[in-house]
Design a protein around this nucleic acid. Structure first.
Lengths: 233, 233
DNA sequence: CTGGTTTCTTGACCTAGATCAAGGTAGACA
DNA sequence: TGTCTACCTTGATCTAGGTCAAGAAACCAG
């Protein structure tokens, strides 16, 4: 990699806070790579060979059962970290939902570098703790929420996470954004079928809480009612 | 705390690997505390004041909705770490499922100590990554598995985690153990009602895969069929 | 613009698991 | 030793969301 100091996620990714010379060493370990929508960069069950920072684009983290049932267990945005450091096999796949740009490291090189740079491990720890909080929040959704509560929660979550993407939170995106997932993927994330997702979205649209000008585009009209719905019923 | 070097979880908790003098400093920051079954040590939404190592006993990590629906998002065993370091509010509660013994630290003192001891933060990172893997595995269960698959998965998970508790994996416990959860708690962990849990357990018993000599005790008769069931159907 | 493909929506029907409602049963305590 | 109480099991019924089956939009290539 030529110059990490110019990286667009420089101040938000786990490499933020490294000293200039440390950053240069890390930069030499990594390489930028473009991946296309649909391309898988980490395979469930395979040896965990790479880790990466997301520079641009959105990716899904998913696990599946032998008979093909799939659950999306995470959605990853620019400046987020992907891959499973310090472990032989990756328990999940990582697949691009949009065209994306990654900053890839071999896992072994990253593991060694991380152990030598406590500041980096600290950043990674904080991120992993946040990811764990999000995973647990999603367990509450999957275990206890109704279909309409799930859809409302998803729309709000996507809204906030997409709007946090820019250098500063981007209020223009907050109530008007493109979903990076199709209906099937929304189902796989929420533990619902594609038909239930479609019906519930239509219902929210009819109730005036949202607009759906086309397949991917979402406009939130009544954020408050939507978040009431997300929390209880 | 008098003497960490005598601690029963000494070699498995995150404090393993600290130098004797570091361990002594950490020991002075912590105190042992007994908690009774049912007692809550961390409250959801409250400021995160303490973290702890579990010395003895089993605890649940849970999140709930405003209307009282509760999801258990984690079960914690001896040598595991509890609490949310590096964050103001705890997103979940932690409650003892059995009488337990903890080694408690104020969060602020622990945070400072951890930042000064990369080896400790590394251990904590590894544990958090494992906890995240488990949470995601559970998301697959909650999003995609049938009731019988969920029960089978739970029994196997409890079997392995309880048997790993001793200094060495304890094969006697593997197929014969006491569930630290009652039926309601099993339901809250699996996203099922108490009645469904009861019916599915009875079904597994009738099929001869397990025995249930009393409320809490479980004997696994046919581990292979149980794990076939846990994975697919 | 047109025909083909993919994705999404809608409708009709079905089922796994929830809900409601009695009973059992095992500890606990007098 | 009885009876209280907190769990647990079982049965009957209901329903949210799944499944199956058409269409309808959007998207794309020529």
């Amino acid at each position: 990699m030529k110059d990490c100091s110019q990286c667009v996620v420089r101040n938000r990714a786990i490499c933020a806070g490294l000293l200039p010379d440390e950053l240069e060493v890390l930069g030499r370990l990594g390489r930028k790579q473009l991946v296309q929508r649909g391309q898988t960069v980490v395979w469930e069950g395979e040896e965990s060979l790479i880790v990466a920072n997301v520079i641009e684009g959105v990716l899904k983290v998913s696990m599946s059962m032998t008979d093909g049932r799939e659950q999306i267990v995470g959605v990853v945005f620019p400046s987020d970290f992907i891959g499973r450091p310090f472990g032989k096999a990756s328990p999940y796949s990582v697949t691009a939902l949009t065209d994306a740009e990654l900053c890839i490291f071999t896992r072994s090189a990253f593991d060694i570098f991380a152990r030598e740079h406590p500041e980096l491990e600290h950043k990674l720890l904080r991120r992993t703790l946040e990811e764990l909080d999000r995973a647990r929040e999603w367990m509450l959704l999957l275990g206890k929420k109704s279909a309409s509560e799930r859809i409302a929660t998803l729309l709000l979550e996507m809204s906030t996470r997409l709007s946090e993407q820019g250098c500063h939170a981007n209020p223009a995106v907050l109530n008007r954004f493109d979903l990076p997932l199709d209906r099937q993927q929304i189902g796989d994330l929420l533990g619902l079928t594609i038909e239930t997702v479609s019906r519930q979205m239509t219902k929210l649209k009819s109730a005036g809480l949202i607009d759906l000008p086309d397949r991917k585009h979402v406009i939130i009209n009544d954020r408050m009612r939507l978040s009431d719905l997300a929390m209880a019923a």
